[in-house]
Amino acid sequence: MKTSTLISVIVPTYNRADALSVVLDACARQTDRYFEIIVADDGSTDATRRVIERSRRQMPIHLEHVWHPDDGFRLAEIRNKAIAEARGEYLIFLDGDCVPQPDFVAQHRALAERGTMVTGSRILIGRSLTHLVVKNKVSLYGRSLVFWLAQRIKGETNKLLPLFVKLPRWPRRPERSFKWRGIKGCNMAAWANDVAIVNGFDESYMGWGHEDADFVVRLHNAGIRRKKGFMATEVLHLWHEEAPRDRADRNRQRVLQCLSDRRIAAQTGLAQTLAKARSDADAVVAA
């Protein structure tokens, strides 16, 4: 991708202001500077707004805050609202508790190619190291191999190699046969035009689980090839309690059905979000 192509980094969050602060700080330190950030806020309290306002004053990157009221788990909807506000031709999805390495945007730019999307992976950070990062403001930047070996021995991280070795032009990146497993919504990217074709994220998914896989499957059904971000775009996923997974099995079956039916468009997605926004704007003008 050209260096003159604007990228939009969409960062979903919900009531985890301390982690979001670390993520936004990492975004401000990117080696590639031609991108914007849109925080997709699924109904957080004022603590999150204050973090965003403070980051906006200090950050050299354009930062937007898209929020809607807390009405249960509505990750797909707030992502679509953020997509609707995005100005970039290319969209990177990064969770609000996943700390990007300094070359994260640059690596995604290097991997971007028309007709493809990128799904990356994550490095898990344990509870104790997460506490040091978010509470004691211990930076993960520039840490030595000795530091990370110590964390690995203590069980505070599950991977080391992607922190020190990058393979941006690895020939095995495009998948020869599609596999929907292993998709991580905390680190993936696609062209905005392709996202519009599949109608964004499907808001009809209820509860946690597999709405990210549904998004990738529909891109695949639309003819978009999946590329692996392995050993290039890894993010540091801060520890958190697991979300309730009572809907995971039913959502998984929906993904498998979507793949079987070769469905492309989300049942309720980006187009409906845009239509509602226009309707709300017209109502304000009429009033």
Rank of each mutant, 00 (worst) to 15 (best):
I7F: 15
S8V: 12
P12M: 08
P12I: 11
T13K: 03
Y14K: 14
A17Y: 09
A19P: 03
V23Y: 05
D25S: 13
D25F: 06
A28H: 06
A28E: 09
R33F: 06
Y34D: 08
E36R: 14
I37Y: 01
A40V: 13
D41A: 11
S44A: 13
S44H: 08
T45Y: 12
D46F: 13
T48H: 05
V51R: 02
R54H: 10
R56M: 08
M59E: 05
P60S: 09
H62C: 08
W67K: 06
H68W: 06
P69D: 10
D71P: 03
D71W: 07
D71S: 10
G72Y: 10
A76M: 07
E77A: 14
I78K: 00
I78C: 09
K81P: 02
K81I: 07
K81S: 07
E85K: 15
G88R: 03
G88A: 02
P100A: 06
P102H: 01
F104P: 02
R109I: 10
G115P: 04
G115D: 03
T116A: 08
L124G: 00
T130K: 05
V133M: 04
K135W: 04
K135C: 06
K137F: 09
K137M: 07
L140Q: 01
S144E: 04
F147C: 04
F147W: 11
K159Y: 13
F164C: 08
V165D: 01
W170E: 05
R173A: 03
P174D: 06
E175V: 08
E175L: 14
R176D: 06
S177H: 13
S177G: 09
W180D: 08
K184F: 10
M188L: 15
I197Q: 11
V198N: 07
F201N: 03
M206S: 09
G207H: 08
W208T: 12
A213F: 04
D214I: 09
D214A: 15
R218L: 08
N221T: 02
A222I: 14
R226L: 11
M231K: 09
E234I: 08
E234H: 12
H237K: 08
W239I: 01
H240G: 03
E241Y: 11
P244Y: 08
R245D: 05
R245F: 00
R252G: 01
Q253C: 07
C258D: 02
L259E: 04
D261P: 03
D261Y: 10
D261I: 11
A265S: 05
T268G: 06
G269F: 02
L270W: 04
Q272E: 13
L274F: 02
L274P: 00
K276F: 05
A286Y: 00
A287L: 11
